[in-house]
Structures are given as structure tokens and as C-alpha cells.
Nucleic acid binder design. Structure first.
Lengths: 186, 186
DNA sequence: CATGCCATGTAAGGCGTTACATGATTTC
DNA sequence: GAAATCATGTAACGCCTTACATGGCATG
């Protein structure tokens, strides 16, 4: 999946500047792009080159000028084609933590528990952030469209992933304490 | 997290060739590297250059020669240092599917259900593969070490992630069928 | 006779990240 | 006076992926 398609999808809703897109991507936990300048501004220039979006520079007093991009008819066609052809992609779950854990288990099992504990702290911090975000999202009332329903469902899903993560760490930690106590005189 | 550390961790267990490492990475669902040649062989050459592993070419009849790498004392030190300093990294969950879904919800909600269904099929296929793999792993009896316990726990975790995924799709699909039926005459 | 496994590497290119460059305005 | 927000881009670099190159042996 290319960032171009995502941008096209976002601009299909309303015209936006690169900066707006950047903010959107930065605080959407399901947007898989980090929202760095290089990606977004390059993609926008390229989309404009292909005639899928049109950029209009808006000058204002007090704040810097900005380029507001809108999707074109050609862009809407391209978006439709993409949606029609799109195959659902499998998730990619990258958890370097698991590799670290597996290595630690082989090299020095006595450190496992502390390591799991530190991971749990980070997961819980992340959870708090996401839950806070979710509360804000719920507060500014969802209209009863499919779009806002899906958005809420996605948010819940991501939260439940982190909850599952925390749960797994806790049960694993307990099992380890039980089976492989720190002072291990067999 | 660098692939070098992972390789060092694997070689700490037993000497292996690049090809062996490749196979390991290809069929471990938690190994975050794809196991392509470029990464592995380059990393091995570099590790050898730094004296963290030593490679020995083994000639045999019938099959091609191979280079078997073993971790050195210096390598074991480096591995220990890395483990001591390692901060647990947060998971990165990339789900392009969710972006596609969110766009589809805004552009053409009538396609949502079919899209969710196709995703479910792929998730379930993946689940079957992982469960099959898990059964094989369980069959060749775990010794009662922390390492094999952690390995099994990791496997279970990954499976339960996909189970959660399948569950979410099903409940979301049902909600959509209820709230936004296909023939939408308000 | 074709495909796949064993086995080690190299090359080209895409995608992503951080950091750089610039500069006005608002907030603490 | 320092830092954040608004705002658009560019440059350098690293990681990762696919594909290429080579070649014997085994299996269907």
C-alpha cells in the first residue's frame, strides 16, 4: 500500500495542506506512515504532477502561506480504481522485544523478569495515551455514518491489542516466577 | 534492534551457516527480518570483520561447501553488553488493511462487508499455518528450560493475535450488517 | 526434464528516517 | 527569552526488498 493512495483517500474528504496531512498521520495510530515531511511533500508534488490533486497556494496575514490540495476528478477515478482492485493486506507485526526476550531466555534467564516488567511499563504508558485519545474521540460525538463507526472500531481494536499485550506479559511473568525462580538451586 | 544482535544470539546457541540462519528467520513468525540473503550474509561478513564471530569453511562431497560461523569470546561479551543495555522496544503494528478499510468506509461503504470478508479469509489461512507450526513445535517435546518456555509463550501470543484479529472482523462485520444494510434507502 | 533444495554472495532501487534550512507568531 | 505552532521543502543516509549470478544434487 502506497502513501499516495492514503493521501488521495484523505483529500477525498476535504482539501488539506501538507501540514494538515502530517498532523493527521502523526496522531492516527493506524496510519502506518510516520508523517515525516519527506514522504508527504514528495507524494503531494508527485500526485499534483500526475493531475490527481490540484494545489492552490493560500496567503494569509500572520501565518505562513500554505498550499491547499484538493482531489481532482481524475484523482477520484484513480481512488475508485484502487479501492476496487485492492486486496486486503495481512498485518505486519514487528516486535523486536520478542527477539530480545528469546535471546535473554537463552543467555541469561535471570534477567527475564525485570525485562518483562520494563516492557509492561511501556505498554501501559502507551495504553493510557491511546485510551485518552479514544475518550477525546468519543466526546466529539460520532455522526452515525459507516465512516465514523469504522473509525471507532479501529480505535478499539488497537487498544485491545495493547491490552492483550499487557495481559500476556503479566501471565508470562507469573509463570516464569513460578517455574524458574531467581535463586535457582535445582 | 539490529540484525547483528539477533544473529549473535542465535550463534550463541550453536554454530550455523548463513543458510541455516536464513531458514530459521524465514519460519520464525517473531523474527522481524525477512531472512533475505543481502541482510544475513552482509551481517555475517561484518560480524566476522569485527571479530565477534569466526567463520570456517566446511567442504563436503555431494553438497556445496558452506561457511559455518561460531560466536567468539569477544562476541559473547558484546552479546552480554547488548542484553544488559537493551531497552524493551514497543511493538510496531503495521496494518495497511485498516487504512484501506477507513478509506472504503468514506468512499463506498457498500463494499465494506465484502472487503472484511476477504480479509477474514486471509487471516484464517494464516491462523491455520501458525497453528500447524505450533503443533509441530509442541510435538518435538520442550525441554523444561526457560528458553523453550518463552519460545512456546511467544508462539501462543502470535496465534492469539491472529485470533483476536479474526474475532474483531467478525463482530465488526455483524455490526455493519445491522447498522448499515446494503440496500440503504434511509 | 523441470522443479526444488543446498549454498554463498552481489547489485539496483525503493522506502523511510533524521536532520537541515527558513522564518513569523503565539504562549509560558 | 525559550519553546511550541504554523508551514514548505531538501539532503544524506540506512535499511530492506527483489532480482541476479552460479552450480551440483535429488525428487517427481
Amino acid at each position: 500500500m502506497l502513501i499516495d493512495d492514503a493521501i488521495l483517500g484523505l483529500l477525498n474528504d476535504r482539501p488539506m495542506s501538507g501540514y494538515d496531512l502530517k498532523k493527521l498521520m502523526l496522531d492516527s495510530p493506524y496510519m502506518i506512515w510516520s508523517g515525516n515531511n519527506n514522504q508527504i511533500y514528495k507524494a503531494l508534488l508527485q500526485l499534483a504532477e500526475h493531475g490527481l490533486v490540484s494545489g492552490e497556494t493560500v496567503h494569509r496575514d500572520g501565518t505562513p502561506s500554505k498550499k491547499v490540495y484538493a482531489i481532482t476528478a481524475k484523482g477520484r477515478d484513480a481512488l475508485g480504481d484502487w479501492l476496487a482492485a485492492a486486496e486486503p493486506e495481512l498485518p505486519e507485526l514487528r516486535q523486536p522485544f520478542l527477539v530480545q526476550l528469546a535471546v535473554a531466555a537463552r543467555v541469561d534467564p535471570s534477567r527475564l523478569e525485570a525485562f518483562l516488567h520494563r516492557y509492561l511499563d511501556e505498554i501501559e504508558a502507551q495504553l493510557k495515551m491511546l485510551q485518552e485519545r479514544r475518550r477525546r474521540l468519543a466526546a466529539r460525538a460520532g455522526d452515525d455514518t459507516a465512516a465514523s463507526f469504522i473509525e471507532a472500531a479501529i480505535d478499539d481494536k488497537i487498544i485491545s491489542f495493547y491490552e492483550g499485550e499487557a495481559e500476556w506479559v503479566q501471565t508470562t511473568r507469573q509463570s516464569i516466577c513460578g517455574r524458574f525462580p531467581k535463586e535457582d538451586e535445582t
